[in-house]
Computed example of a mutant assay.
Amino acid sequence: MQTKEQKISPIKQRILQYAATLGISKRDFYTRIGVSRGTLESATGITEDIMAKFIATYPDVNPEWLLTGHGNMLKSVTVNPTATNTPIPEDNIDRPKARPLTTIWETTNVKPIPLVTETAAAGFGNGFLSIEEKDVKEYYVIPKFRYCNVDFMIEVSGLSMYPHFNPGDVIACTILKDRKFLQWNKCHVIATREQGILVKRLMPSAKDGYITVVSDNKEYPAFDVPFDEITGLALVVGSVGLE
């Protein structure tokens, strides 16, 4: 006869094994990674979304150990690429509040992609986007985006891009650092000073110093935006949505 622990998937068992080393209650642990008790203690399988939340909250965990049970529970060294090239001993790990988007889920080569608020996304025009945990709604692990250089994901609001995008669809974005990489008639995320975040197709404008933004929904007319109003541009490379 199987015990309750034996019925739980091996990955869930390893997550609970790690939780037992933290010296905190299970309730606090579940709150930190944003899941319910039943999510990890039930006999159902575990989703990529739950694994991404766990690994994003506790980046010192060795993904190979988590997935296969092989190797050490913790990574031997942790490097913060934006701060130092010096290895940090495990027992001195400080988990940063701001997590650079270049952090890689090393063993699988799949990067957890942050789904961010519009306020956070507006900062991509600054050239370096470092996102606070409070601005991250979810983390997505999407193998098909592995080679797409996705910097962040954001939810679509409104109906201006219907039927291509529905409200609530999640779009994956690659920040453009040079305007010469604009792709006409492709969907882009545009950060503007006055109108905030726009999701539109881009077309050349007849006016110098302007660009034309076009909606897929014909009830929304196209309009021109001056380049000096735009603080950031990102190409939409994919999307996630529900029927």
Rank of each mutant, 00 (worst) to 15 (best):
L115E: 15
N126K: 09
P59G: 07
N62G: 08
T108Y: 08
I55L: 14
F128H: 14
A56G: 07
A56L: 02
S76F: 01
A122H: 05
A122W: 00
G69C: 09
W65G: 09
T84N: 12
A120R: 05
T103M: 05
E90I: 10
P81G: 05
L66H: 04
L74P: 00
N85T: 13
H70S: 10
P59N: 07
T86D: 13
D91Y: 10
A83P: 00
I113F: 04
E106P: 00
P87D: 12
V116A: 04
T108A: 09
P96A: 14
T84E: 13
I88F: 00
P81F: 09
R99K: 11
T78A: 01
V110D: 08
G127Q: 09
T119M: 03
K75R: 12
T119D: 13
I55V: 15
P89Q: 09
N85R: 13
G125S: 10
M51K: 15
I104D: 13
T82H: 03
I88W: 00
G125L: 11
G125N: 08
T86P: 00
L115M: 13
I50Q: 02
N85C: 09
A121K: 02
N80I: 07
L129S: 03
N80V: 05
D60A: 02
A120M: 12
A121G: 11
I55G: 00
P112H: 11
G125I: 11
